[in-house]
Design a protein around this nucleic acid. Structure first.
Lengths: 347, 347
DNA sequence: TGTTAGCACTCAAAATTACAGAGTGCTAAC
DNA sequence: GTTAGCACTCTGTAATTTTGAGTGCTAACA
């Protein structure tokens, strides 16, 4: 039985065994181990021959001449795509842990990252939902005192933006009312992309003397769409990488932790994840496949969750290439579901 | 010449030399090194005698029997308090680097942490200013749609808080106006501590049917004072600790980095720093003196900066005990000044 | 009396050696 | 096609030696 990757059934079984064994131990695995580990009833010598083939095909490799084999990125890829079966796992526990402190979204997401990290023993990240394409729901200007006006802008998913605007001379109540009216009638229900230069010019014209204020308000609106501005990323368990010797040398550890501290790179990961639409929304990057160069020695698993409003956020798990993919994918799916549920319950 | 610590001038010079040398190299320093390093013109044997005394007095210690000496916490303390002279340093550069991207306070502080980290090669943190004791400047309720009201609260230092409040039935414009009036006349200019139960009861009574909304607004106000809620801590250069072998073993590195990731402990550090008022606002914690247990093998230097409005924030530098105190203190003072300047300029 | 030269001693770190064990590839026999 | 067997390779570890920096102490010196 040969499928498109050109591997015999027996080779597949051996590859599977090598990878599973390596996932557990983190040590190169030799032919003798496999010959006992599997139900193939083959001698180590036979296994050796097969393994030599598998190495030639690029699925496994030797760290040095007389060591066992470890999976290559290609090997992991085949494993994740085809070989792995998903584990069963006890449910409910995660949810309980999460509902515990979940009074605010921010807290909730932080907590989610934390639970996921302690649940998997890998490093995790959760991004706040992003207003991908969003509509203005409400705009309001109010005088704070004689010199300052505050602009409050509410967007689709109840995302709120403020801006304090300095003015030279106080606005009369009447004028304030007019401005509010003008802004709301013109902009409400409008998607941010629809606000173009023509519209802006028209608005300013109608605002007359107060065109300065209008342009400040529009600045605030512009800020609101700035993705990086309003996307927060919560991380947890970065130090988990120290549990895996292959990632704990100073060099790798520094790179990974740096990526976690300066969230810049994680932002990129989120962006890429959201861009690439897949069925389940779950993606696995192995080694060099990752969009984040600092994590080239890791595997990265990402998933998206939705708020219904078109708001999407990302969950990520970062661990060694020999991560427990079955467990991770399972946990990921559960968290995804639970976040979905929670947000829809709140809705 | 003997001062209150009971050390002869010569012993002081030797201690100074030991510490300075150790700061540079990170290696235990021996008597022969000192005898060459100083202008005392003493033989190594004499130095040895003095060093034995210094060890007995607890200022220096030996990692093992036949090694040189390293400073103890007590030794560092003496050094920081008395021995150290401040270095001259070229000015201007830091400011330029900072003004670069400083369009918003958040960005500014992030940038400050970053600059400080790259300038000192230690890990740094900057906390956003906190409204220690703050007054309500302005409250405004507005209808977003038929089911939701948004409450905007502006506090002393232009800190803005929002809360979206669900209501069962729409408020009429008139009622909204009344409520706004009521809230503003009652609460404006009021310090948060002044809002007590009596006041709340009175407010609710006056609000009549809408007492529910009032209590939601007050909840939002309560949130506003929650320190932890609105204090953000930005960190940078956590990976700098890997530059110092004495902190790079897995154990210590994990602890420190964990403190940086879960900001909880840093929050404590900030609180303590703000509580303890000193002349310059700069404090040095050496080893076990630190309020953060995870950093017991480090030295922590903190400073506060002010926004004039009674808003205070904290800057922190975390490094090995053998950190370059002169440089650090200098940098700290400069950053302190520059933040002060910037915020007052903006004011 | 304080300073110094000299020496025996200590200890950690580095280098050296030896050894065991895991694993391989190849060959020859089944 | 499978397997047993063997020679060979390589790593990791443990044991051992070497090296060198540094100390404390003693005795001589100014």
């Amino acid at each position: 039985m040969i499928s498109e990757h050109g591997l015999s059934d027996r080779k597949l079984k051996i590859l599977h065994a090598v990878i599973q064994n390596y996932l557990e131990t983190g040590e190169p695995v030799g032919s003798r181990t496999i010959s006992k580990y599997t139900d193939l009833n083959l001698s180590s010598a036979t296994i050796r021959n097969e393994m030599a083939d598998l190495e030639e095909l690029g699925y496994i490799m030797q760290p040095h001449t007389s060591a066992g084999r470890i999976p290559s990125d290609k090997g992991y890829r085949l494993y994740v795509d085809m070989l792995m079966e998903e584990k069963e796992q006890e449910l409910g526990e995660l949810q309980e842990q999460m509902l515990d402190k979940a009074d605010r979204m921010e807290q909730l997401l932080k907590q989610a990252a934390r639970v996921l990290a302690s649940n998997t023993n890998y490093a995790t990240m959760v991004s706040t939902p992003m207003n991908h394409s969003n509509k203005i729901k409400f705009i309001q200007l109010s005088m704070v005192d004689d010199e300052q006006v505050i602009a409050v802008i509410v967007l689709g998913g109840n995302v709120i933006k403020n801006k304090i605007i300095r003015i030279e001379e106080p606005l009369s109540n009447e004028n304030l009312l007019k401005l509010n009216m003008l802004l709301n009638t013109t902009l409400n229900g409008m998607a941010i992309e629809e606000i173009n230069l023509g519209l802006i010019a028209r608005l300013k014209e109608q605002a007359g003397v107060h065109s300065g204020v209008v342009s400040d308000v529009l600045d605030a609106v512009a800020d609101a769409i700035q993705i990086d501005e309003d996307m927060q990323i919560y991380t947890s368990g970065a130090t988990n990488i120290f549990k895996y010797p292959e990632l704990s040398d100073n060099q790798s550890a520094q790179e990974i932790i740096n990526a976690f501290e300066e969230k810049q790179q994680l932002t990129e990961l989120v962006t890429q994840t959201l861009a690439k639409e897949e069925n389940t929304g779950i993606q696995v990057y192995i080694g060099n496949e990752t969009p984040v160069q600092n994590m080239k020695d890791c595997s990265v698993v990402t998933a998206t969750y939705e708020l219904g409003d078109g708001m999407k956020g990302t969950i990520g798990i970062i661990g060694p290439k020999r991560m427990d993919y079955e467990h991770v994918l399972k946990s990921m799916k559960r968290l995804q579901n639970e976040l979905d549920q929670m947000f829809h319950k709140k809705e």
